[in-house]
């Protein structure tokens, strides 16, 4: 998008990974561009910019969305979780470790979106079977074709979470 000189900037506060960010931005700035270009959170990726590939998936108020199709100014006060908010190298999120164990990535570009999407999928609670996970994860494209490992990693985490639940 082309920014015009006289565009009216709007102030918006968005909580990203627990930190409030008050920014003054043009209305055309998407949540993805806000994260990447304004907040330097480059973990969320731009693969198509049209909501087709899922590389930009983040959790917005707890739900997985394509951040490339969200105008940031429309989400005043919202809460965003990106890949940077999930774990660290020293303390990986269970899905991150499961992705490594199952070699669920090759070039890694789609991976942040895959992991955020998988968390969203688990929170939604609709996908229970192998085939439902495959269907539910089909909004996240992977050209390297790591799909089998991705589904295995999600199943792995879902199983360990449900067994933990049973133990409680």
């Amino acid at each position: 998008m082309i920014l015009t000189q006289d565009s009216t900037q709007i102030e918006v506060t968005i909580h990203v990974n627990g930190t409030p960010h008050a920014v003054k931005i043009d209305p055309c700035v998407t949540l993805l561009d806000l994260l990447r270009d304004h907040l330097q959170l480059t973990g969320s990726k731009k693969g198509c910019d049209h909501g087709q590939c899922g590389a930009c998936t983040v959790l917005l108020d707890g739900k997985r969305v394509n951040s490339c199709l969200v105008l940031a100014v429309s989400r005043e006060g919202s809460t965003v979780t990106t890949i940077e908010g999930l774990g660290s190298i020293a303390n990986l999120h269970p899905l991150q470790s499961a992705f490594i164990r199952h070699d669920a990535l090759q070039c890694g570009y789609c991976t942040p979106g895959q992991i955020c999407s998988a968390i969203g999928l688990m929170l939604e609670g609709h996908a229970k079977s192998h085939d439902e996970i495959r269907e539910g994860m089909s909004g996240n494209l992977c050209r390297c074709g790591a799909y089998i490992g991705i589904v295995e990693a999600i199943e792995d985490v879902m199983e360990s979470e449900s067994s933990r639940g049973e133990n409680r």
Partner: peptide, 17 residues
């Protein structure tokens, strides 16, 4: 122009391999 009119395999297209 996009993944909408140029389909690449998605997770749902992949079964046993």
């Amino acid at each position: 122009h996009s993944f909408a009119d140029y389909h690449i395999p998605s997770n749902a297209d992949v079964f046993d391999l």
